[in-house]
Amino acid sequence: MHLTGIQIGSLLLFLGVLGFICSRTDFTQLAKDKAFQHRFFGAITCVFVLWLFRVSIYDGLVMHFLWLTTLTLVLGLRWAILGATVVLIGSTIIGQESASMFGVNALLGVVLPIGFTYLVYMLTFHKISRNLFIYIFLCAFFPGAITMVLKMLAMSGYFYIEGMYPWDVIEYNYTQMTILMMFPEAFFNGMTITCLIVYKPDLVYTFEDKFYIDGK
Rank of each mutant, 00 (worst) to 15 (best):
residue 158 Y to E: 08
residue 155 M to D: 01
residue 192 T to G: 02
residue 158 Y to Q: 04
residue 169 V to N: 00
residue 190 G to C: 00
residue 158 Y to F: 15
residue 191 M to T: 14
residue 162 E to W: 05
residue 149 V to P: 01
residue 168 D to H: 15
residue 173 N to M: 09
residue 161 I to G: 00
residue 164 M to T: 07
residue 175 T to R: 04
residue 175 T to E: 07
residue 159 F to G: 03
residue 152 M to H: 07
residue 153 L to E: 09
residue 171 E to N: 13
residue 161 I to D: 03
residue 192 T to K: 00
residue 180 L to S: 12
residue 195 C to K: 02
residue 162 E to L: 14
residue 181 M to F: 14
residue 157 G to L: 13
residue 169 V to G: 02
residue 191 M to G: 00
residue 164 M to K: 02
residue 176 Q to N: 13
residue 159 F to Q: 09
residue 165 Y to S: 03
residue 184 P to N: 10
residue 175 T to I: 01
residue 157 G to A: 11
residue 176 Q to G: 12
residue 178 T to R: 09
residue 178 T to E: 13
residue 185 E to C: 06
residue 194 T to R: 02
residue 150 L to K: 02
residue 188 F to Q: 05
residue 191 M to W: 06
residue 178 T to H: 11
residue 154 A to H: 07
residue 167 W to C: 00
residue 195 C to Q: 10
residue 173 N to I: 03
residue 174 Y to A: 02
residue 177 M to I: 08
residue 187 F to K: 03
residue 163 G to R: 07
residue 183 F to N: 01
residue 153 L to P: 00
residue 153 L to I: 12
residue 176 Q to I: 10
residue 189 N to T: 13
residue 179 I to K: 12
residue 152 M to C: 06
residue 155 M to P: 03
residue 184 P to L: 08
residue 196 L to D: 07
residue 194 T to L: 15
residue 183 F to I: 15
residue 186 A to S: 14
residue 177 M to G: 00
residue 160 Y to C: 01
residue 149 V to C: 13
residue 190 G to W: 00
residue 168 D to T: 13
residue 171 E to K: 08
residue 165 Y to C: 05
residue 178 T to D: 10
residue 172 Y to S: 15
residue 174 Y to V: 09
residue 169 V to K: 04
residue 181 M to N: 03
residue 178 T to A: 15
residue 164 M to S: 07
residue 189 N to E: 06
residue 178 T to K: 06
residue 193 I to C: 05
residue 152 M to I: 13
residue 156 S to C: 04
residue 180 L to T: 11
residue 192 T to I: 13
residue 189 N to D: 14
residue 191 M to K: 07
residue 151 K to F: 06
residue 175 T to K: 05
residue 155 M to A: 05
residue 188 F to A: 14
residue 187 F to L: 15
residue 167 W to L: 12
residue 195 C to V: 14
residue 158 Y to M: 10
residue 168 D to V: 09
residue 165 Y to W: 06
residue 160 Y to T: 08
residue 151 K to M: 14
residue 155 M to W: 01
residue 189 N to W: 01
residue 159 F to R: 01
residue 152 M to S: 03
residue 184 P to Y: 11
residue 189 N to S: 11
residue 161 I to K: 02
